[in-house]
């Protein structure tokens, strides 16, 4: 059974296995397919048109399925690997072990944002950016510059307290838990973390930075925490909503899974805190 752990609690061996599996997916070309898929949905999801992966109720189940696909790909390389999560309310410093050279490497240099250490630095020779929006082929970050502070636990609590999953108009203008977690409205949780990391994480091709998976694994965990806190609240909308994935409609690009199939994470994995 897959147990998703807090990245801060990983052993040296677990970090090495995770990094090696990611690098192998990159080498084989499978990694970049995930970047391409994500960017396609970023470009295609619009507030007044069809929206599936982002700015819509299915933001959470879509990313749950997306992460499951990625985790299964990792496990085909090394069956012992699970996706770790990054609790950015706790590990909120550039000095976090997350950014050490034995894990994800640190921030980019000021000249061009290039990450210079760790396994994903371009000079380590195993991480060229191929799915990209500009000419640069090196991984970039600018930790804590575009926005100074990561969200706090108190801000997370204020969003987890919201009893309604999502609300009309089911987009970036919505009130409710999903849009406050996604960050288009209110204290801004998920979006702000992308901005805080900077570089590729600030773009539509954000999965180019492996921290993408650790960030979304924590967003996914917050969805599970919300469900536990509001057992009487369910996914919305229930049916008949144009351009929006209702509870029992299938989601692109898989077309074989509905939000209803993804509400319970425990058939697929558990968290170290479950």
């Amino acid at each position: 059974m897959t147990v998703r752990k807090n990245q801060a609690a990983l052993t040296t061996d677990e970090k090495r296995r995770f990094v090696d599996a990611v690098l192998e997916l990159k080498r084989s070309g499978r990694y970049d397919a995930f970047v391409t898929t994500h960017n396609a949905f970023i470009l295609g999801d619009t507030d007044h048109g069809e929206r599936t992966g982002h700015r819509s109720p299915s933001f959470l189940p879509w990313h749950r399925r997306f992460l499951l696909e990625f985790e299964r790909a990792l496990q085909e390389v090394d069956a012992s690997v699970a996706l770790p999560y990054w609790d950015w309310t706790a590990d909120r410093s550039l000095r976090s072990s997350l950014w050490a050279p034995d894990f994800l490497g640190g921030t980019g240099r000021s000249l061009d944002g290039q990450v210079m250490d760790g396994p994903f630095a371009t000079r380590a020779g195993k991480w060229q950016i191929t799915v990209r929006v500009d000419g640069r082929t090196f991984l970039r970050r600018s930790l804590g510059t575009a926005v100074r502070e990561l969200p706090t636990r108190a801000e997370v609590e204020s969003v987890l307290a919201m009893p309604t999953y999502d609300m009309a108009p089911w987009n970036s203008a919505s009130d409710g838990f999903r849009n406050h977690l996604e960050g288009w409205r209110g204290v801004n949780l998920h979006n702000r973390v992308h901005v805080w990391v900077g570089g590729h994480m600030a773009t539509g091709a954000s999965p180019n930075d492996p921290v993408f998976w650790l960030h979304h694994a924590y967003i996914d965990k917050l969805w599970a925490e919300w469900q536990r806190r509001h057992p009487g609240s369910g996914y919305l909308p229930a049916a008949g909503t144009p351009d929006v994935v209702d509870l029992n409609e299938t989601m692109k690009p898989w077309n074989d899974t509905r939000p209803a199939d993804l509400l319970d994470h425990t058939p697929h994995y558990t968290f170290d805190t479950d």
Partner: peptide
């Protein structure tokens, strides 16, 4: 540059997607 307008009238681009 790929550009998108949000429901509240703000804008984002593909290179700065999460920061209207």
């Amino acid at each position: 540059l790929h550009l998108m307008r949000n429901a509240d009238g703000t804008w984002i681009s593909v290179v700065s997607h999460y920061d209207p």
